[in-house]
Amino acid sequence: MTERDGFTRTGPGHLNLGQAGPRAASPGLAVEASGLAKSYRDVRVLAGVDLRVPAGTVFALLGPNGAGKTTTVRILATLVRADDGVARVAGFDVRRDRSQVRRTISLTGQFAALDEMQTGTENLRMMGRLSGLSRTAARQRASELLGQFELTKAAGRRVATYSGGLRRRLDIAASLVGGPSVIFLDEPSTGLDPQSRLAMWRVIEGLAASGVTIFLTTQYLEEADRLAGRIAVLDAGQIIAEGTAAELKRKVAAQRLDLTAASRAAFERLVRHFRGALVHQDDVSLTLGVPTEGDAAEVRALLDQADPDRSLIAGFTVHSASLDDVFLTLTDSAN
């Protein structure tokens, strides 16, 4: 099977990637920000945010409502001016080189940026014309994107008749008419039903595979985990943790073991036993939660150590760590 061997091992593409060619040597940063600060009147939304996103990667900014995710994205997309700090997108300064940044990026916000009374095709053609394409090129680009996002069937209908998932997909397609190399997606799956969310994830994975840089914000650990190579956790306007999904999970554990105590006395003994490890504690329902990797051996060991006589724990559940758990763990370790 020389043909297969030659293809997989000595193909020119593979060889080039291994060598220190110009492409491999300077991957470059798509987004670089330091000390971003922003206040609205007396409310400090961002208190010094630093970010570094290598080109061609998927980056997730994870945080609860009000953490400052949207403000961060809007500053990077040149729509809002930071009070302090500097940011460069694709090498351009967001303040000084606004037009160049805008020509390089796309932004899809939480609210669809589409004309309800125009059809899908009309929206895409208009965006194409506004991003400088000729009439013919805009028409071609529109039908290309409609096909790519499986919107051809809905293309002739007015956006007002679209479902939430369809609308979000057209919105992303519309943001791509100009062929951006850095794509900002602000909470791309918020408000979508589970099926549409899955479809959205596949769209984002498809974009990522095309080699562009994707900067997304989300409230869901699961979403960041699935889509992003690196994740930064934003809380109250500050980055409180950053790393790969695996690194973050090592800090917070992917699963949570919830124990229900047999009695109040048992509850108190369990609380004393776990002390610093607790990520959840409810004095009324007598439940407490500890991080775990979730495999049977570890859970069994945890139960045995906490309750050697098998009298304190009445029941247990294991479930995926929620964003709350991540925050509790991270803010605990920060204090």
């Binding site: 040149t78 729509l79 606004r98 805008r102 990026i105 932004l107 519309a174 943001s175 100009g178």
Partner: peptide, 8 residues
């Protein structure tokens, strides 16, 4: 309006 602005 954000879309228009981000299209410069």
């Amino acid at each position: 309006i954000d879309r228009f602005r981000s299209l410069d």
